[in-house]
Design a protein around this nucleic acid. Structure first.
Lengths: 241, 241
DNA sequence: AAGTGGTCTAGACCACGAA
DNA sequence: TCGTGGTCTAGACCACTTA
């Protein structure tokens, strides 16, 4: 079961490592593409594919007629790929756990049905949790999933740490896109109680729809205690214009 | 000054139009890549570059050994490219204007200096505005810019509608990346007064650092009236893994 | 004028999925 | 087995920057 790794990916890894280890210092230039191809024994096309990834990840800045300059990558944020909330928190060094986990199959509320392309009232799996970071409540999490893609999830729910990792390992589902809608609201009495905060405190509200193979498969509602978490996202202009 | 448009971009436009006009209905498949190349009189490589863009924009889902399927693009959100807050509002059909515009050159606060890679206290141009959507206050906007990239901005400030469009037309600066940090907070008395809302109302806070040619050139602080605006962002997994 | 990246070709072979 | 997309080659010519 040897991993099949394309050349351009290896070259990307090599160049990235060399940049990060200062073999190509910030401000210097990568060798010209034809030269790189010769040195690495690949065609220029393959080199270019690797360089495109370096651009996308913010390591280099390319100018026609000039060259490919190494950027100060420590100054730039990593690109935002899809991660679950809990993964993000763990990356930031928090110990994440959950309490009050409840799983039910319920008729879908109208808004959930619309997001998941269902008829209103079609059955969905609803997961309710309170996320704790270092033991302190940080968010109320609601996940709505299509029952047909997660059969038998009720019995496995204790295994869920990161939902996406869980979906991948238990159901072989890979997420390939997500849309987040972010707003803010004051905490209601019940929310305040559940999160152990003052009623009326600001909450960061995130509604997320996740897609697998082009179809929506999950809607998540997060109510995050503002001040304990910051949401970050990096956008880039589309390449080659 | 004829526009120079690459083949793959024209092909992308063509295919996208055909998809949107239902010449390729949702659920059907694009012709195989070699066939497309023959029909359009380009090499398969060029076809593939166009298809990559279709993937990125969420129009198609490609499976090796199967084909390229047309997705229900009306169900997916467009990818998030960099837009200014005012552009986003205008896209949503609001009439955007500003009041209380103030421009000053000030010593940079420590946090701004850090984000812009300056020494604390180095001079920056500070623009303060209140954005109105359909005449109603919707956000307090603070922009910090490097003076050397926007010389003489004080005299041009009345021309600013969308800051990014302004930077492009007046200074030939193109933004190629941005990072947003999003949180929430309760409005202070002064903020409430400026936005004509109740003190303590939730505000959506966005801190943005924009990059041009790999270097940070602007920091923006937005304090948005929650409930009047929703921030949305679409993320994708990195292609080809 | 020389050198850089940007686009494009016309092939080739491979890996995967469906029949 | 066959047809699909995934990777790769070895060129070519063009557009842009710098000198």
């Amino acid at each position: 079961m040897a991993e099949r790794i394309p050349q351009y990916q290896k070259i990307y890894e090599t160049l990235r490592r060399q940049i990060q280890e200062n073999e190509y210092p910030v401000g210097s230039f990568l060798p010209p593409e034809p030269e790189l191809g010769k040195k690495l024994n690949v065609s220029r096309t393959t080199v270019r594919k690797a360089v495109e990834t370096l651009i996308r990840d913010g390591f280099v800045y390319v100018r026609r007629g000039v060259g490919t300059e190494i950027l100060d990558f420590k100054a730039t944020q990593p690109l935002q790929y899809i991660t679950s909330f809990s993964e993000t928190l763990r990356d930031q060094g928090f110990e994440v756990s959950y309490k009050g986990v409840k799983v039910k199959v319920v008729p879908s509320p109208a808004k959930v049905a619309a997001d998941l392309k269902l008829e209103t009232g079609a059955r969905v799996v609803k997961i309710h949790r309170v996320a704790l970071a270092n033991g302190k409540p940080i968010a109320i999490m609601l996940n709505y999933l299509l029952p047909e893609v997660v059969p038998g999830i009720e019995k496995k729910v204790s295994k869920i740490n990161s939902l996406y990792a869980f979906l991948e390992s238990e159901y072989n589902i890979t997420i390939d896109a997500a849309t987040d809608y972010i707003s803010a609201r004051s905490a209601s009495a019940e929310e305040a109680e559940e999160l152990k905060i003052q009623e009326g405190s600001p909450l960061l509200m995130v509604r997320r729809i996740t897609y697998s193979k082009g179809s929506p498969i999950e809607r998540a509602d997060l109510e995050i205690v503002a001040g304990r978490y910051e949401y970050s996202v990096r956008t880039m202009d589309r390449p080659s214009r």
